[in-house]
Amino acid sequence: MDAGRIAPQRERRARLFLLALLAALALVLLAAYLARPEGVLVRAAMPEQGGWLPAELKARVGEPLRLRLISEDVTHGFAVGRHDAPAVDVNPGEYREITLLFDQPGKYVYYCTRWCGLNHWRMRGTIEVVSAGQPGSDGQAAPAEPPLYLQLGIDIDAPHPAAVVPEGRPRAELTAGRISGLPEHYRSREYYLSHSPSQAWQALRQEPAAQALSDEQLWSLVAGLWQAQTRVERLEFARQQYNQNCAACHGAQGAGDGVAARQMADGAGSGPVMGMQGHGLQKPSSFADPGAMLGASPALLAGKIVRGGMGTGMPYWGPIFDDDQVMALVEYLYTFQFDYSLEVKDE
């Protein structure tokens, strides 16, 4: 018995040691807690596997929203529409942290920016941003006026063949000096937005001022009018966005022959690969076909881009591009028809 007894000193030391150990453990836990990764975990997966998880996020105006992004399968990308945070890649096996700040309430859409599969363009989620003070108030500005195509009564889903088409590709440069003889309204933004090039051509054919022009010269004149409405400084932005978001379907040269188009169904549309909702899928439009493109007004094209095809396979871009960006895209689409000489702007 005696031999088994521990001296009181040693016992105290042992207790102290144990206490110190416990304190150290608590400290470590506290440190781990403080250094824990902050932010909402958002997982990315191919749309067939569920897309974004969660697909609905909430945030407050002026309060940073921290996200930790990770992919479950392939490389995806993350960007928020109508927001200027740069897109980031989301890779499997590595957390990507980003912080978003919103200064306007509203419903934002985030979307995948890497072409991860055939249904890539369906990979979207929403962020509901409420104003800091009153939760629930969605603070959205007064109802926006209806889009131009609705005001003009254009059916953006109907075929719009051009009544007249040029022999070759109209060049804008021939016309630089001639535009001045025309009634002013042809040169207005309103005219441009609401008329297709072939409508403009037909109207101009009736103009006394244009009587002396050949058909080809008249097309050059139309190209000149269209060029005058094209903001050259926005074309580069539009080209990049087009290549990134549209070329896979519509083709880099606008011919409707993008790599994804090959896999999309013809007309009737029972594309096997678009399994998620394969009805009514169509071939992507060709912007290089004058018969269709010259029959389309900017209002029609912008309307289609914003609203999408509603089941045709054409995504809707309204929550992603603002009006100005959509118009830049529309202006860019006409470059598949017209040769602009971009130095010679309308005098």
């Binding site: 890497r114 072409w115 070329a247 379907c249 083709g251 880099a252 790599v259």
Partner: peptide, 13 residues
């Protein structure tokens, strides 16, 4: 061993 790293989405080169 070569400083080559390219990435592109379909439709881009």
């Amino acid at each position: 061993s070569y400083p080559v790293d390219l990435q592109a989405d379909p439709g881009q080169v």
